[in-house]
Amino acid sequence: MTATQAAQPVRHNATSRGRVTPTLMVYLALVVLLVVGSVLVAMRGGVLLDHGGILNILTRSTVLGLVAIGQTMVILTGSLDLSPAYLIGLCSLIAAETMAGDPGMVVPAVLLTVGFAALVGLVNGLVITALKVNAFIATLGVALIIRGYLENTYTGPAGSVPRGFQHLGYDRIGPVPLSTVVMLVIAVAVWWYLTRTKGGYHVYAVGGDAEVARLSGIRTGRTIVMTHVLCSVMAGLAALFLVSRLGSGAPLVGADGGYDLESIAAVVLGGTLLSGGRGGVAGTIGGVLILATLDTVFDDLGVTPFLKDVVRGAVLIVAVALYARSQLARRAR
């Protein structure tokens, strides 16, 4: 599945034929990382890509992948979302407390969670477009508001999910977790939307140049609001997966995962420009897989978690520097 995903946008977005696009670079880097990682782990007598290893990488990718898919859309319009982390925490509590262990409440709880997430996305979008607040500030503000509510109201985990709902988090098809399949299906759907529909073109147009897009008759505000709603809904779905694995809602589950900055890192690592208009979901999934593989390799090697952060930071900066360089080379032609 990932192979076709990688190939398609390359063909689609290739502005200069024969050049290495960021998306291709991401997947090449992923392959190199898998090979080097396998060798390193093998030298310590382990196997990176056995059943457990693959499961580990994919499980790690799922939640971050969902948030990053939403973040990709937002960043493509030239906006930014800093609210997913605390939103995930709040959504996990809403879901778990609504279910309260009752199998009959699963559907209402899921609807309520997704609906609430959409509402937060709507607020984000409207603050940015109607109140003309910089996206950084608007979503940071919303994140802080949610954080304050969480810190004031909850002291620890709350609510519980029925056993049936935990299937979502733990069931697998072969070595692939069910939740990863759902994430990848959503990724393909979003990829199709961005590259094959009018709405998707509008996203790229707004990110490329909002003023030109507006003059071309695109409702730029509506596009930005919509991507924020979708991004928050993705955060809501991520919360549902986390709840199904944890069995209850936890206020800091999103913040501890660092899903706000981490998702932005994954998107940018995937070759999407932070200023918008260029990039796509295929690269983002590659970026997420790279981060997850790095984590798994480090765990297998028994390296302290602190070195992970250092490597992550360095990888992020180096990757974006490389993209900027190839961008420059292209412009020079």
């Binding site: 900055l261 932005i264 890192a265 940018v268 932070l274 200023s275 302290t304 978690p305 602190f306 070195l307 992970k308 952060d309 250092v310 490597v311 992550r312 930071g313 360095a314 992020l316 900066i317 974006v320 520097a321 900027a324 360089r325 961008q327 420059l328």
Partner: peptide, 27 residues
């Protein structure tokens, strides 16, 4: 220097620096 010479957006550079510092000092 990374922001101005390597043309990486400062948001990303300082985010990366955040991760590096967080990790390095406790390492």
């Amino acid at each position: 220097v990374i922001t101005t010479r390597l043309l990486v957006p400062s948001f990303i550079v300082t985010l990366g620096m955040l991760l590096v510092l967080d990790g390095a000092v406790f390492l």
